[in-house]
Amino acid sequence: MDKLHAQRAPGRPKQNEQNIPLQEIILRQAAFLFMENGYEPVTLQQIAKICKVTKASIYYYFENKAELFTASVVFMIQLAHQSTLRYLEEKDDLRTRLEQIAKAKMMHAHVDMETMLREANPHLSEEQFGRIRKAEIDIHISLAKHFQFAMDQGSLRSGDAMFLAHAFSALVMLGSRKHVIEHNTPQEDLPQTVVDLFWDGIATQPQHRK
């Protein structure tokens, strides 16, 4: 047991009736609130209330709001990474797999990640911010490996696989932002539109610089 836990009141917070660890419940609910509202508006009291626990239970696991924010965002990104890997490892062609990734991301679109991180950054330590960025980079590494494999197989033209991973993620993020802003507009074709733009570019046919 680490020093942080050892210093706290005896008696570990109980698990819920479904035997889901309380720490995981807190992480999931905190991630939802932060992604819906951003960093500043969310309080530990709100998180405790939605989890049906006391603030003391929150403090049992997390030293402060910044640490809970970091842990919950990393947890959320890791879940997204697992989902991305599942789609990437399916047997469909790469383009179809990318559409599935984009669709899954947009189905769970919330506040813009970069906006949220800019807002939270003054409250986070360098180490905490680094943990979040590393979790994001891990997704890009997984995407880049599959892009590189497609290049090696000749189904994608040669290029910088990591750059493609960042470019794809950026387009999906823009699509997610459009989905949030225009939530009353039919969005069924948006994942395909995003992947089409990534895959085919914007020219009607290949063009060369003069």
Rank of each mutant, 00 (worst) to 15 (best):
E67T: 08
A66K: 03
L197C: 06
A170Q: 14
P41K: 05
D93Q: 09
M35D: 04
R131H: 11
L22M: 13
K103L: 04
Q18A: 14
V74M: 08
K134G: 05
R86L: 12
M151F: 13
F69Q: 00
I132Y: 00
Q29W: 07
H146C: 06
V42K: 02
Q15I: 11
K91T: 15
E182T: 08
F32A: 06
A6I: 09
E24F: 11
P13H: 04
Q148N: 03
Q128D: 04
E99F: 00
A102P: 00
E99I: 07
L197K: 08
R86Y: 10
M113L: 12
W199H: 01
V194L: 03
V42Y: 04
N16Y: 15
K210Q: 11
F75P: 04
R28G: 07
G38M: 08
Y59M: 06
E89Q: 14
V42Q: 01
L44Y: 04
A6K: 12
L94I: 11
R12Q: 13
A120H: 03
K103H: 08
D196K: 08
S176P: 01
Q100S: 08
H208S: 13
A80L: 06
I47L: 02
Y60L: 09
Q192C: 02
E36Q: 11
M76T: 09
H166P: 02
V172A: 00
I25A: 02
F69Y: 02
Y39W: 01
A80S: 13
G130N: 06
Y39E: 00
D160R: 03
L190T: 03
I47V: 09
L22K: 08
Q148V: 01
F69I: 00
E127L: 10
G201R: 04
R157Q: 12
V42G: 01
Q187M: 14
F62Y: 11
L33K: 01
K145N: 12
L197G: 09
E17R: 14
M107F: 11
K14H: 13
D138H: 06
L4W: 10
Q29S: 09
P122L: 09
L197E: 05
A104E: 13
E114M: 15
M113P: 01
F69R: 01
T185Q: 13
H146S: 07
R157K: 13
R12P: 05
M113H: 05
V53N: 00
Q7D: 15
R8F: 12
Q192P: 01
W199N: 01
A80D: 10
I50F: 05
M76D: 06
D2E: 04
I20F: 02
D160T: 05
T70E: 12
Q187H: 15
K52D: 07
I181S: 08
M107T: 04
A102T: 03
Q128I: 04
E136N: 12
A144Q: 08
N37L: 12
R8S: 14
E67R: 13
E188A: 09
M35Y: 05
A144C: 10
K55S: 15
K55E: 15
E67V: 10
M35N: 11
S142M: 08
K49Y: 09
I101A: 00
I141K: 12
D189R: 12
V73P: 00
F149G: 04
